[in-house]
Each structure stands twice: as C-alpha cells, then as structure tokens.
Simulated assay, not measured.
Amino acid sequence: MTGALPIITADQRLAEPRGIKGCIFGKSGIGKTSLLWSLNATTTLFMDLEAGDLAIEGWQGDAIRPRTWMECRDFAVFIGGANPSLRDDQAYSPAHHAAVCQKFGDPTAVDRYETLFVDSITVAGRLCFQWCKGQPEAFSEKTGKPDVRGAYGLHGREMIAWLTHLQHTRRKNIWFVGILDEKLDDFNRKVFSPQIDGAKTGLELPGIVDQVITMAEIASADGQPARAFVCQTLNPFGFPAKDRSGRLDMIEVPHLGQLMAKIHGPVRPAAARLTYAPAVEGLPAAAAANPSHVN
C-alpha cells in the first residue's frame, strides 16, 4: 500500500509552535548581556561563553558554561535533537545525539526552557577557530605546515552547521549576542559588521536567523543619547537589521521580552508588511508598485 504524500496543511502549519531565532549586535558595553533582565528567569537558559555575567549579578536564571567547541556542539545536539539526514560519523547525527544523551542524561531536562540566550557568538567563533586550527584540514597535505585557508574554510562550515542546527530547534527562542564592529571603507563611510572570525559566518548569518537586531545608541527626541533596537533593514544608520516577522517598527524599545511578545503578536496583513515606493527614479511607476514584475 502506497502512503499518502506528507503534506502539512495550512491549519497544521499555523498551529505549530515556533520559536524566534535572532541575533543582537552592538558595540561593547552597550548592555547586550543585561537584556537577560528583561526575560523570564525561570524559562531562560543562559549560555555564558564570555564569563561576563557581572552585568546580571542577582539574575535568578540557570546557566551553562561551555569552554570548548566540542561542548558547544554537544549542547546544540542535546537541545535541538538529531538530524536524521547525517551519517553517524558527523556532528548532530543520531549517533552524536545518542552519545550526548548518554553523557548528559534525559534531553527532556531542557524542555522547561523556552529561550536560549547565547552570549556571545563572537566567543563561540573564537572557540570554533581554535578547534579548527588543530584539525587535519588546517594543515597542508604536501608540507604538513599550517594552512590558514584550510582552517578558515573548516571554521566557516562548522559555524554554519552549528547555527543551522540551533535554528531548526522549532519550539525554542534562541538569541545570539555579538559585538558589532565599525570601520571606514575606502570612501570614508561607516561600515558595520558582526565581529566573528572568518567572513563566511558573518555573511550567511542574516539568512539563517529570523531577526537581526542592532542595539545602538541613538539620540532621543530631546537630543539625549538613549539605547534602542534597530530592527528593519532599511534604516538611516546603516546598521545590520532584519525583521522576518513583519511586526516590528524600525526603532523599538531595548527590552527583549517586549520585543518577543510583539513578534508573537497578531499577524499583520501582507499589504501592511510590504511597502513599495510609488515611484523610483529611472523605474516606471507601475513597476515600482509591483516590483515582482520587474525583469
């Protein structure tokens, strides 16, 4: 007997619990770690990679402190489950998951946590690169000497696999925190980019997560500096940002709990989520109003 095509109906898809996957970037000292104060301590697990929890002294939530890249991978498969498409000799495979469960115990122990707060992806990248420099790919087959290009190539693959596995943990909110670098390009313009070893992770990360938020210092209405979340790609500051939910304004209050509540709020109609310029210089008005028809 032939089985039915496993189609997920619209009702089933809309009823599925889905967590938010996002990253928050900002300069050092802007208050990224302190965002934990805005989250429910009983349902939040703090992945403390920086050992920088002085800012949240007194916060009542639980934490884990991986010290190696192997521990970071083990926890990702423990919380996210196995990827059945992988071979037993690969990370995040059923064999890897089984070995980690034997080490850590019943994975349902983390079911009570709704949010994983990873501080920071910058340090995770450093741990990953340190591990990669000791792998066979990081050495030349001909000379046996270190091959930096091989190490960076492996680093990019490892980081993307780790982030993608956590991104597929549908039921949990996962937030990655990182440092935002500010540089000047050849035309003396400010350019912002995540501080992560290697270029591959920083380039591909925005396509993996749902939300990219920049926590920045922006002048308030009275001209005084204030912290804020910049949440939309089209912003006048040039900050990296992205809102897949379509529910966030360009500037939001820097309160992560309120931000998640807004993302989980009522769905906005498509007409309100996508805005088109009525006319763009060099582009016919009809095409600007319906850019999908532009060749």
Rank of each mutant, 00 (worst) to 15 (best):
L5R: 14
P278F: 11
I79V: 15
T275L: 15
I218N: 06
K200I: 08
R189Q: 15
Y92E: 04
E182F: 07
Q211D: 13
F117Q: 07
T2P: 15
S140N: 10
P240L: 11
A51P: 01
Y276P: 00
F237T: 02
Q232E: 08
R149S: 15
R126E: 14
E204K: 15
D89C: 09
A124D: 03
G144N: 07
D119P: 01
A289G: 09
R189P: 07
N188P: 00
D111I: 02
S120I: 01
L166F: 01
A63D: 04
I121D: 01
I251P: 01
Q130V: 10
D243G: 03
A216R: 04
A285N: 10
P240W: 14
E137K: 09
N188M: 09
C23M: 13
G22I: 05
I121C: 02
I79D: 04
A287F: 13
L166P: 03
A241N: 07
D147H: 15
M47D: 02
P6C: 04
G246H: 11
A241I: 12
A289M: 06
V77H: 00
E158W: 05
H96T: 09
F187Y: 12
L248C: 03
Q195P: 00
K200V: 07
I160G: 07
F176S: 00
D249S: 07
A272E: 15
E281T: 13
G3W: 09
T122W: 01
I7L: 10
T143Q: 13
A55P: 08
G3L: 13
G80E: 04
A98C: 03
I8F: 01
F239I: 01
M70H: 01
M250K: 05
G22A: 12
L54G: 07
R73A: 05
I160F: 08
L154N: 03
F129W: 06
L5V: 13
N290D: 15
D210F: 05
H264E: 10
F139K: 14
M1Q: 06
A76Q: 04
K172A: 01
W175C: 10
S85T: 15
C128A: 15
R126H: 11
T214R: 05
P269R: 11
C132T: 10
R149G: 14
E281I: 13
V118K: 05
P225K: 12
P6A: 02
V110D: 00
D119R: 01
L127W: 07
P6T: 05
H97I: 00
G29A: 10
